[in-house]
């Protein structure tokens, strides 16, 4: 079986905080892979390590057989990344930004033009593309970041909370796009706090907690592991991560 991403005993710490502990992952090509976990569980660090933005302290990461550290240029060519908060050049217009990203990836003029126009239309940004990004709403910036990640047709998409700030229609478009790209063999790693989205979109889910992998499998497999076959993914998640005692906290807050 061909793997899009492989983590081999990867660990990472930031000063005293152990963000990721001895993580082993194998993500199959064409899969939509969900990373779930409470805040600070290491999801964003895992994603940044896949992109090469954060270096692991130990272990190795491979993307389509390329070592992220040694063959970083080859990895970057086949990778699209949407960070948790869009980091765009706010002094450029949406169109100029996309034009710039396309040039960085060396796209031909006609391919660039058709893809940008197509995506602007799909995400309903037509008519706003000549405005400077500094005036965009969070959702619009998120759309531009998603388009920028898709422009060069990556083989691996790394999406950190991709649907945050998007309106329901745009969220639906992104979900459909992810499915369509999976059909075309594109692998997606995405993190989300909205468990219904993970349930609906992801082929496979990993639950991270305090930098460790607690469970992995399809949502049905996770329910089985938690011995909660008829429960929602949220209930399974809360049980697995040991954070299901929320009732007492709410009662304490009420009093």
């Amino acid at each position: 079986m061909e793997y899009a991403v492989v983590f081999e005993s990867v660990s990472k710490s930031f000063e005293r905080i152990q963000a990721v502990r001895n993580l082993n992952l194998e993500i199959e090509c064409g899969f939509v892979y969900g990373l779930l976990g409470p805040n600070g569980s290491g999801k964003s660090t895992v994603m940044k390590m896949v992109t090469g933005l954060v270096k692991p302290d130990s272990g190795r990461i491979y993307v389509h057989g390329f070592d992220v550290q040694r063959d970083s240029m080859k990895v970057k060519k086949i990778l699209g990344y949407v960070p948790e908060t869009p980091r765009l050049y706010e002094f450029l217009t949406g169109l100029e930004y996309l034009d710039f990203i396309a040039d960085i990836h060396g796209l031909d003029a006609h391919i660039k033009k058709s893809r940008i126009e197509e995506f602007l239309e799909v995400f309903e940004l037509e008519g706003r593309e000549n405005e400077m990004i500094s005036g965009y709403s969070h959702g619009m910036k998120q759309k531009i970041a998603i388009i920028a990640a898709l422009l060069h047709k990556p083989k691996l998409l790394v999406l950190d909370e991709p649907l945050s700030g998007l309106d329901p229609k745009s969220a639906r478009i992104v979900k459909n796009l992810i499915h369509k790209m999976a059909d075309d063999g594109v692998t997606t790693i995405m993190s989300t706090h909205v468990l219904e989205i993970a349930d609906a979109v992801c082929d496979k889910i990993t639950i991270l907690y305090q930098g460790e992998k607690l469970a992995e499998g399809t949502s049905a497999e996770l329910r089985e592991k938690a011995q909660m076959p008829n429960s929602t993914l949220e209930e399974v998640f809360l049980k697995i991560t040991g954070t299901n005692s929320t009732k007492e906290i709410i009662e304490a807050l009420d009093s």
């Binding site: 040039d103 060396g106 003029a109 965009y136």
Partner: peptide
Amino acid sequence: VPVSINLPSPKINAPKNGFLGIFGFTAT
């Protein structure tokens, strides 16, 4: 209010290095 500035750009530019190409600069 964060200002919203409209800068009309007639078209998407073709990747080019223009006169900088003379000095060995690539389109990127």
